[in-house]
Design a protein around this nucleic acid. Structure first.
Lengths: 332, 332
DNA sequence: TTGTAGGCGTTATCAA
DNA sequence: TTGATAACGCCTACAA
């Protein structure tokens, strides 16, 4: 390995001068600078980040922890976060937590271990009251899901408002028996319960009854889960003319499951999803969806971590992303 | 910050003993071990990875560089790589290269900079002859696309064989005018050209002409690209009874584009994709596809990097993933 | 403008 | 079984 002192020897100066050249510090004559740069080129020297970090305490890397990177929503989110971080001179390392509290706690620990300067955590399993969250002053921004606003910086999704708008839209289109395909965890405050409450709120506001028999829970927020739920729904014998899905991926599964049972969308059943993933515009029929502004969310999250990295004592801030209700063929 | 020597003082031993306890090395009495662990717990000590890396030269992190993490194929691949690496005690940091040679070179540079122990690079833009690849003995494994086998460890996809099998399948189903929706870069040796050649090979073997008018190029391997290509195809006036798409994502776009033009799959046109992403089973109609074994590929890639990390001088190895031709509704 | 000394937190080596 | 010492490669502080 080529070290600074190798470069120093090669160019006939001290390591300190090499360091000054590398870090673009003032007080190096042009002639020496050139000689050092040439020596660096020749030797193929690369700075050792561990050594530098050991001294400076900064790595320039932000961690992004998501439940499952193969879920389109998180893939898109990651792409945006990477772009935003790059603009601020940070690098992003992605971590997969596996949608459980344990994985999320692990991600925080790893984040320390790998010496990221800060962490953006898309927590779905973690409870805000979890005692293991008592980490201290490490810069963590919660993205999208649970409400940790009191203790952490937080960029929330418009879960209730969005699902409420989606449900109201179905009612406007004439639906009266509206089912919801929701997640399994219906206690606590999380993305699933909040979206469920948005659905209930819209029904209540329009004077419709919420029939518990029209609530179908999926195990994971997956295509398979959505499909299975649609099968149960179709086989239940309940007349349903509208379906609110907890996410676009689940909605895609529902779409497939309804097709399996010969139910046509939107003719027999109207369907609306949540997340606004680009894929939703390409299904057949295309999928109406609640689309939070992903770019905005990513920008906000990166802005918050970097701010907290610079000033660990600043008060926690909370924002909620704006959203669009994208109307497509599935609710025509 | 709590350091090892703080823990050492607190528990009345030397730093070396603390180090031994932390790294689970033999030769520490149970009593001392317990005392040290208790001191670690009390003090909230966390190991400093930079210092450890500075000494040991290992970070325990493998970089995974992919063109776009929001493309389902890469999302799934990443999930598998993470799982496999975990089994071998490695951590994975994902890097997005943006599907260009520049980004891929950058990823290599970053990988050095961030001191990953090795890098798995899913290169699509990089040319095997690129002079900037002359890095030296840093452990890099090429995954999936280009053929770098002479200089790098390489896990290839069954590009030609797979597309050939897919095309032959269409012919078996009675298709005679088979179009291909392919990528833009039709020179050099890359995933696009190899799949294209597989298509040509199948046609030739069955005595069918390859009509250049039935070749439709997309700009990116995206849903939008596939849709646009399908529009051009439908509007061209050519009679087409089968379509081979260069990837599943492109095929999904094609599916949508054909629906836009009122063409039914498989009744009017049969369609087959490539990659075997799980999403392909959930489209309407579901999508036949060439499915390489992702888990196998991930396992092989991780095996190769770790082997090279342990022995940088071992000869480069090359493997090609096995595949299944998944037959679904789109070619029924 | 350049150089020297010392230390960041950890671990390998060798001695006790 | 445990401990003292000397690095790892870089940067801060200060001296020349």
């Amino acid at each position: 390995m080529v070290t600074m002192s190798d470069v120093a020897k090669l160019s006939g100066v001290s390591t300190m001068t090499v360091s000054n050249v590398i870090n673009d510090r003032a007080g190096v004559s042009d002639q020496v600078r050139r000689r050092v740069l040439e020596a660096i080129r020749q030797s193929g020297y690369r700075i050792n980040v561990s050594a530098r970090t050991l001294r400076s305490g900064r790595t320039g890397v932000i961690g992004l922890a998501v439940p499952e990177i193969d879920r389109p929503y998180f893939g898109h989110l990651a792409t945006h976060v990477i772009a935003q971080a790059k603009e601020r001179g940070f690098h992003v390392a992605i971590e997969e937590t596996g949608a459980g509290a344990a994985g999320e706690i692990d991600a925080i620990a790893h984040s320390h271990k790998l010496q990221f300067d800060g962490l953006i955590l898309s927590a779905v399993g973690l409870d805000p009251g979890d005692s293991r969250l008592s980490g201290g002053d490490y810069p963590i921004v919660m993205l999208g899901e649970q409400d940790f606003s009191a203790r952490f910086d937080h960029v929330a999704m418009p879960n209730e408002e969005g699902t409420k708008a989606a449900t109201a839209h179905l009612i406007d289109r004439g639906c009266r028996r509206i089912a919801i395909v929701t997640g399994a965890a219906l206690d606590g405050v999380n993305v699933v319960t909040r979206r469920y409450h948005g659905y209930l709120a819209a029904l209540a506001e329009r004077g419709l009854d919420a029939d518990p028999a029209l609530r179908f829970a999926v195990d994971g927020m997956t295509l398979a889960g959505g499909r299975a739920a649609a099968h149960r729904l179709a086989d239940s014998g309940h007349e349903v003319d509208g379906v609110v899905a907890v996410s676009d991926t689940v909605a895609q599964g529902v779409l497939r499951g309804l097709a399996d049972r010969g139910l046509r969308v939107p003719d027999d059943v109207r369907l609306v999803g949540f997340d606004g993933i680009p894929e939703a515009a390409y299904t057949v029929p295309s999928l109406s969806t609640v689309a939070p502004d992903h770019r905005w969310m990513a920008a906000k999250a990166v802005e918050l971590v970097t701010a907290r990295i610079d000033d660990p004592s600043r008060p926690a801030a909370a924002y909620t992303a704006p959203f669009d209700l994208m109307l497509r063929e599935s609710t025509r």
